[in-house]
């Protein structure tokens, strides 16, 4: 039995996959949990029922999809494209807002029992909407927004850009953000589950962070490449990152991450990790690599479980379902898969 077959064992026994024919830009699970979706560089969205059955293709953008997130509602998806459209995709696709020539590069949503919020980033502006798609406000930034997130409670929205990040209170009457400053180009953002640490990826193959309660700066360096994915584990203990030839995990405990060495997992073969996604419940991280390899890494045990062997293109999309039972991933060459990790009879 060859190594490739062994590496594909989980994909073959627990996965459903398709060659979709275009760059997989992103993947996400609907909040209700019934489906997952893959957004593609040809502007289509492919919706896969988690229970099995055929995947449904929806034409969404005239151009490439650039960003995908679950809608705040239970079934749909939010999609941003280089056709300037911020769209809600359910059975069909419908505009939430349009921005002409500008690209809609980031989308995000939040939902809890009290509120539903949608957001998209277009150039220097972040547009905030209620769950029905009614625009609430526009937030201006000093330069183009490169990353956009709600915090875990939906109270704040954070955006990365040149020379730092901006932290906005969603419900504030006056829109003056807390500016987190650090010189340089910040290209992506994460916020810890407790909402106290904001971390950005930087052009210079490093991460920068701010501890919000005491304003302390956090510095995490040593990457051979740019970090595209930042993902905190559920309990906030670890920040999993891509950009090295291993999964790099920074400890956010015991005085870390500054002056602490990160833990490295699944390294050693010289292939760059392109994406990471922390499991929503356990100290487990999924990671995708530039050769197409997808693995799960158990942090405490330092054990690696291959999910999908190399050879299907650089991994360009990776996401867990909220219950942690399923993992979706896709590659630059159009391969897309949905793998079921829940107990099987």
């Amino acid at each position: 039995m060859s190594a490739t077959v062994a590496a594909d064992h989980i994909l073959q026994t627990r996965g459903v996959s398709h060659q979709l024919g275009a760059y997989v830009v992103g993947t996400a699970f609907a909040r209700g949990g019934a489906t997952c979706a893959f957004a593609l560089g040809d502007g289509t969205l492919h919706v896969a029922p988690r229970a099995g059955g055929g995947w449904r293709r929806v034409a969404v953008h005239d151009g490439a999809a650039l960003a995908l997130a679950a809608d705040a509602g239970p079934a749909g998806y939010l999609s941003g494209g280089d056709d300037g459209r911020f769209r809600l995709v359910g059975e069909d696709a419908a505009d939430i807002a349009t921005f002409g020539m500008k690209w809609v590069e980031h989308v995000a949503s939040f939902t809890d029992s009290k509120s539903r919020l949608l957001a998209c980033a277009v150039g220097r502006q972040v547009h905030l909407f209620n769950g029905d798609g009614k625009q609430l406000k526009t937030l201006d930034h000093p330069s183009s927004v490169t990353g956009l997130l709600f915090d875990a409670k939906g109270k704040r929205i954070v955006a990365s850009h040149y020379n730092g990040a901006s932290l906005w209170f969603v419900a504030a009457r006056t829109d003056s953000p807390r500016r987190l400053e650090w010189k340089g180009s910040h290209t992506g953002i994460a916020i810890s589950p407790d909402g106290d640490s904001v971390v950005t990826a930087m052009q210079e193959n490093a991460l920068h962070g701010w501890r919000l309660n005491d304003g302390q700066h956090l510095r995490m360096t040593g990457y051979p490449g740019k970090t595209r994915a930042l993902s905190f584990t559920r309990n906030g203990k670890w920040l999993a990152t891509s950009g090295a030839d291993a999964i790099v995990l920074w400890p956010f405990f015991g005085g870390g991450p500054t002056n602490k060495s990160p833990t490295e997992l699944a390294g050693g073969d010289g292939v760059i990790c392109t994406l990471v996604a922390a499991h929503p419940q356990q100290d487990v991280v999924a990671a995708g690599f530039a050769d197409g390899l997808v693995v799960l890494a158990d942090i405490a045990a330092a054990r690696i479980l291959p999910v999908c062997g190399p050879g299907r293109g650089p991994v360009s999309a990776l996401a867990w379902s909220a219950d942690g039972g399923q993992l979706a991933f896709g590659t630059e060459t159009g391969f897309a898969a949905l793998v079921n990790f829940s107990k099987q009879d």
């Binding site: 280089d82 020539m101 330069s143 183009s144 020379n163 340089g184 180009s185 052009q203 210079e204």
Partner: peptide, 11 residues
């Protein structure tokens, strides 16, 4: 593609 030229200094 319509863009605003955004120049920054490398650190």
């Amino acid at each position: 593609v319509d863009t605003d030229e955004e120049v920054f200094e490398m650190n």
